[in-house]
Design a protein around this nucleic acid. Structure first.
Lengths: 150, 150
DNA sequence: CGAAAGCGTAACCCATTGGTTACGGATTAG
DNA sequence: CTAATCCGTAACCAATGGGTTACGCTTTCG
């Protein structure tokens, strides 16, 4: 029980560079579909479908706000993937500690979720510097004062 | 430098249940292409191509012995995948310890390899109990005394 | 109310994937 | 030498995947 999304979906989702990039972006802050799409050179519908894949794999959750749809990360499925690959890396290095961490993750994630919801304020750190590598033009999106819209 | 196989290939490789199963089998002992194929319901050429994918991703290495081709696991690429997903799980749980483990892995793997070569004896524990779930008939393979052939 | 913004979906294309059967090359057995 | 084994590759096919453009629905703005 409890295993809704399989390793297949998660691994398949991660196998695409665009989707990995999206996940990386979402790690810092939640973003609307348009904000995400603006950072890639591909068309918006293409991004939309990537988002559908991520949704189907459980890696992101979407919440509709007005006419925009915001996506936020849910790392839990990644934990399951990590769980799968644990025995491979755990064969000889230290083993037990790993599973522990993953075990704790799903719980942690839950708490995290609450925290995020209580911190909808503007633009955290803005990140590691890892640019999208694809486009990152960010044209005049007119969304200057995003996020605090509601 | 150094990074020959990307996350794309590795994630793509493990996205398939057959290939994951193969990796799991290879975790216990090296196996010939035929031995592997015998454990699946699909045709042997199909398995052969799965093996090609695994080879291309660096997850297995092959060594030709007589008319048989043996495959053995190389977990190192998995470590790189784990490396990628670390920041996602490390955001809130403890973080540093992880990277350490992965760092050590590639080295450990190397040692492991040597150990395996020095322990070619018959049938280890037979594993976690996770059967192939597909066929697992293991017909009279005629390979009764395998492995110590050399 | 109309016009524009924001986003998902549909229809279509081409490249890739996973499966099948048929084949060929190398090695071992008789 | 001839036959059988082991295993990869080729050719073919149905299904998937990722991209594009065209469209339609809902929500906001003027």
């Amino acid at each position: 029980m409890g295993y809704a999304f399989g390793v297949d979906e998660v691994a398949g989702a991660i196998a695409d560079p665009v989707r990995r990039e999206i996940l990386a972006m979402l790690r810092e802050r939640r973003m609307s579909a348009g904000q995400i799409a603006d950072r890639f050179a591909i068309s918006r519908p293409a991004v939309s479908r990537h988002l559908r894949v991520l949704r189907a794999s459980g890696l992101v959750h979407d919440e509709l706000t007005g006419r925009r749809r915001f996506y936020r990360l849910d790392p839990a499925p990644l934990a399951r993937l990590a769980e799968w690959l644990t025995p491979f890396v755990a064969d000889h290095p230290a083993s037990a500690a790993w599973s522990r961490r993953f075990d704790a993750l799903e719980t942690e994630v839950y708490r995290t979720r609450r925290d995020r919801r209580r911190t909808p304020a503007g633009e955290p750190p803005a990140g590691t510097g890892r640019g999208p590598a694809t486009k990152s033009v960010r044209p005049s999106t007119k969304d200057g004062g995003e996020e605090r819209s509601a």
